[in-house]
Simulated scan of single mutants.
Amino acid sequence: MDAVTSPASCSRTVFVDVDGTILEHGSVIAPSTVTAIRGARANGHLVYLCTGRAEGDIHPAVRDIGFDGGITNGGAFATIGSDLVVSHTMPRAEVDRLVGYFVDHGIHYFLQSHDHIFASEGVFAMMGEFVRLRAARREEDLRHLGQDTTVDLLDAVMADAAERYRPLAEADLDAIAKAVFISEASDTVSRAQAGLGDRFHVIPGSMPLPGGSNGEIAPRGVNKGSAIVEVLALLGRSAEDAVGIGDSWNDAEMFEVVGTSVAMGNADPDLQARADRITTSVLDDGVWNAFVELGLV
């Protein structure tokens, strides 16, 4: 990520979610989104990624847009330019507790560090239908944007998954920041909240699974909102002048701390109700329309 070193004094600080906001179904980006982000930066505004993904899991096409830094792992890490300025990993005892909970309840899971995602055994077998569904939706997305659909998208998605996820045995359990789980049961999020909520922040995930449930787990107090507060303090910038744009429940705390919150048109209606503004959906120029309405471009 390349940083703007001398933003205009009247510029705003914008935090943009990735999945469902910049990206749809893993890799499809509306061209207007790229234009909006680059145009806002050219106009002197700072634009930061704000994602639940690990730093090492940010899609190259997103990274290539150009940002002033990023919040990753749902608030556990943050960079200004290329400098890591926020780092909140889980204590090892908490990681062991999470893993024990997943194993005891037969839940498949991922552990995220700053650079990598590690998958428990059995994840790929369960995700097979999800991968096929995502490949089909990607083809629909590309047609919607008038882009090439001749690539074997199922093979592309499977190759992407194999590249993104490492075996759990390779994980350094002293460097874990966040967990993501997938389950065949529909009530796993509520059960995890009841079983782990004393020490952890448990929220619904955003994977469009054909059934079951998925969620994200982080230590209490570590979220996108807390990281934004830390980044703004380091930048010497006002939260009142900050903008947050997102579509998922891990964006709720971001909405609470910024002066202007924007929910995507594809966001859950309950999340939209918490936002100051609602824009159009991710592939219907949602980011571009929000930036225009806010006077960023």
Rank of each mutant, 00 (worst) to 15 (best):
E121G: 11
P167K: 02
V222A: 03
G100A: 14
S281F: 06
N43K: 13
V16E: 10
S238K: 09
T280A: 15
V222R: 03
W249G: 08
A169P: 07
G146C: 08
D160S: 13
M207G: 03
A119D: 14
T72D: 11
D148R: 10
S6R: 11
G205T: 00
L168N: 11
V282Y: 04
A136F: 13
R12G: 02
D19V: 03
A159K: 06
T13V: 07
E94W: 08
L196D: 02
V14I: 09
R12L: 02
A76N: 00
F130R: 10
E253L: 05
I217M: 06
I58E: 08
A169K: 09
G215T: 00
V287L: 03
G66P: 06
T280D: 15
G128Y: 09
G295L: 00
S82G: 09
V287M: 00
A61Q: 12
A239H: 15
L232W: 14
T149Q: 10
G39P: 11
R277A: 07
P7S: 12
G106A: 02
N266M: 09
V229Y: 15
E184I: 05
V257M: 10
D115F: 15
S186Q: 11
L23D: 14
E240T: 15
D247Y: 14
G100I: 05
V85L: 02
A263Y: 07
M1I: 09
R137S: 13
S6C: 10
A30H: 15
D64Q: 12
L168Y: 14
G236H: 10
S261I: 06
F255N: 15
A290P: 02
S9H: 12
H59F: 04
H116Y: 15
S206Q: 04
R92V: 13
P208G: 05
A171L: 00
V62K: 02
N214A: 05
M90N: 03
V292K: 06
H108W: 10
G244P: 08
S281Q: 09
M126A: 15
H144V: 08
I228F: 11
V258C: 14
A263P: 08
D68I: 01
I80H: 06
D64S: 12
N223I: 09
G246C: 06
M126Y: 15
G122W: 11
F110Q: 13
P31R: 01
R137K: 15
A233I: 13
F110N: 10
D172N: 11
D268S: 05
S6I: 06
G205K: 00
P167Y: 06
R12M: 04
S226H: 14
M254T: 14
V103R: 12
L46I: 03
V157E: 12
L283T: 00
S27P: 03
H114G: 07
